[in-house]
């Protein structure tokens, strides 16, 4: 092995890293800056629509963890009434197969992703916690009807190269992100 190129290769590499010194960083400082997740995100915690659910139990069969607990009894006109709809979000792998399998659009994935709990028991979600609420919104995964309500996903491809970022060697910690921030 000879030094045939007289260190030109090394110099080229050094030039490239120097060029990167003056490019905007791509770091997202998470709790301060939040990116919009994908509209189809499979976030934590399912959203369950009690009025649509007929208690057929397809989701429980589709779950590969055996994680959804559904208890029903026969009501008037021989329909199922759901007594208990429960899943342990600590065991859920968020594959979305239950949402995909639901024939009545009664289940959707949630968009929320900040669902850390202090106790394992808190991760078990019952009927109330799974219902639609202000903080608990459905994503468009298999449910394209919800897509329009959700904000556009912030892509590194678009908004972190040209748009909106101040170019400085040490940008201030609390700076504004591009148009989607």
């Amino acid at each position: 092995m000879k030094f045939e190129r007289y260190g030109i290769g090394i110099a080229k590499g050094l030039a490239l890293t120097l060029k990167h010194l003056f490019r905007a960083p791509i770091t997202v400082q998470y709790p301060d800056e939040k990116l919009n997740v994908s509209r189809r995100t499979r976030g934590n915690e399912l959203v369950w629509f009690p009025d649509k659910c007929t208690g057929c139990g397809t989701c429980t069969k589709a779950c590969l963890q055996g994680n959804i607990i559904l208890v029903t009894h026969r009501g008037e006109e021989n329909k199922f009434i759901v007594d208990k709809f429960e899943l342990d979000s600590g065991r859920c792998i968020f594959c979305g197969l239950c949402v995909e399998s639901c024939p009545y659009n009664a289940l959707a994935m949630g968009v929320d992703y900040e669902c850390a709990k202090y106790r394992r028991g808190d991760a078990v979600l019952g009927k109330e916690k799974l219902s639609l609420s202000e903080k608990h919104k459905p994503s468009a995964y298999y449910r394209p009807q919800f897509a329009a309500e959700l904000p556009e996903q912030s892509l590194l491809l678009y908004n972190r190269k040209e748009g909106g970022q101040k170019l400085s060697i040490f940008p201030l910690s609390k700076r504004k992100r591009g148009p989607h921030a």
């Binding site: 189809r40 994503s139 996903q153 491809l157």
Partner: peptide, 21 residues
């Protein structure tokens, strides 16, 4: 950085960044 762009595309289509299913 470039892988992140690809993963963003995957995320857009299938909802997760690594375990696509």
């Amino acid at each position: 950085r470039e892988r992140e762009k690809i993963i963003d595309l995957f995320d857009m289509v299938c909802g997760q960044r690594l375990l696509y299913n």
